[in-house]
Amino acid sequence: MMKKLKGIIGVCAALSMGLAAPTALAADYPNKPVTLVVPYPPGGATDVIARLIAEKLPAEWGQQVVVNNRPGAGTTVAAEAVARAPGDGYTLYMTTAAHTISASLYKKLNYDPLKDFAPITLTSTIPLVLVTTPSLPAKNLDELIAYAKKSPDGLSMASTGNGTPQHLTGELFKARTGINLVHVPYKGDAPMLTDLIGGQVQMAFVTLSAALPHIQSGKLHAIALAHSRRVDAIKQVPTMEESGMKDFEAATWFGLFAPASMPDGLREKIYRDVAKIVSTPDMTKKLQDMGGDVNNSSPKEFQAFINDEAARWAEGVKLSGAQID
Rank of each mutant, 00 (worst) to 15 (best):
K3F: 15
K6L: 15
I8Y: 14
C12E: 08
M17C: 14
A21K: 13
A21T: 14
P22H: 01
T23H: 14
Y29C: 04
N31R: 09
N31C: 05
K32N: 07
V34R: 13
T35L: 09
T35K: 13
L36H: 12
V37S: 07
Y40R: 11
P42H: 14
T46N: 06
D47E: 12
R51M: 00
I53Q: 02
I53H: 02
K56Y: 04
L57C: 00
P58W: 03
P58Q: 06
E60C: 04
W61V: 04
Q63I: 03
Q64P: 00
Q64R: 09
V65K: 10
N68I: 05
N68P: 11
R70H: 11
R70Q: 14
R70I: 15
A73H: 15
V77I: 14
A83P: 00
D88E: 12
D88I: 04
G89T: 09
T91W: 02
L92Q: 04
S102F: 06
A103S: 13
K107A: 06
K108T: 14
L109I: 11
N110V: 00
Y111R: 04
Y111I: 03
D112V: 03
P113Y: 00
L114G: 01
L114P: 01
K115I: 04
K115N: 07
F117I: 00
A118V: 07
A118F: 03
I120Y: 03
P127I: 02
P127G: 05
V129R: 01
V129Y: 02
V131W: 02
T132G: 05
P134W: 05
L136C: 09
A138Y: 07
A138S: 11
K139A: 08
D142I: 14
K149V: 03
K150F: 02
S151C: 08
L155V: 01
S159T: 11
T160Q: 05
T160I: 12
P165N: 12
Q166R: 08
T169A: 05
T169K: 04
G170S: 08
A175R: 13
A175M: 08
T177E: 12
V182E: 12
V184D: 11
Y186G: 00
K187Y: 02
G188K: 05
D189Y: 07
P191E: 02
L193F: 00
T194N: 12
T194F: 03
I197R: 05
G198Q: 14
Q200P: 01
Q200L: 11
Q200T: 13
Q202N: 11
V206W: 02
L208C: 00
S209F: 13
P213Q: 15
H214L: 09
G218W: 03
G218R: 08
K219N: 06
A222Y: 00
A224H: 02
K235L: 07
Q236R: 11
E241C: 01
M245S: 04
K246Q: 12
D247Q: 05
D247K: 08
A251S: 08
A251N: 07
L256F: 04
A258L: 05
M262R: 10
L266R: 13
V278D: 06
D282V: 13
K285P: 08
L287H: 07
L287E: 02
Q288S: 06
D289Y: 06
M290D: 07
D293A: 15
S298H: 14
P299H: 09
P299C: 15
E301G: 06
E315R: 08
S320R: 15
S320C: 10
G321Q: 12
A322S: 14
